[in-house]
Amino acid sequence: MTEKMLDCLGEACPVPLIRTQKALGELAVGDVLVVAIDHSCAMKNIPEWANKEGHNFEIEEVSEGQWEIVIEKSH
């Protein structure tokens, strides 16, 4: 299992979602992608997408208005 960091700080929608989809596509099942974001719109569409796709995820608010979405590739 590997863990990859994806820095999307300062990027507006839909860029973080598109980069997340691409980065997760390059990982193997069971690998973990940590996406760093600071645009609230990405806090809506990335969880919505991950939920729809059935990937497990948890989010940590690392500081006010900045989050890390930890996504485990499940298929």
Partner: peptide, 15 residues
């Protein structure tokens, strides 16, 4: 969502 159908003007207006 990201492919063109959106539910949130606040989120996607800038693009």
């Amino acid at each position: 969502y990201d492919k063109g159908i959106s539910f949130c003007a606040t989120c996607d207006a800038a693009s």
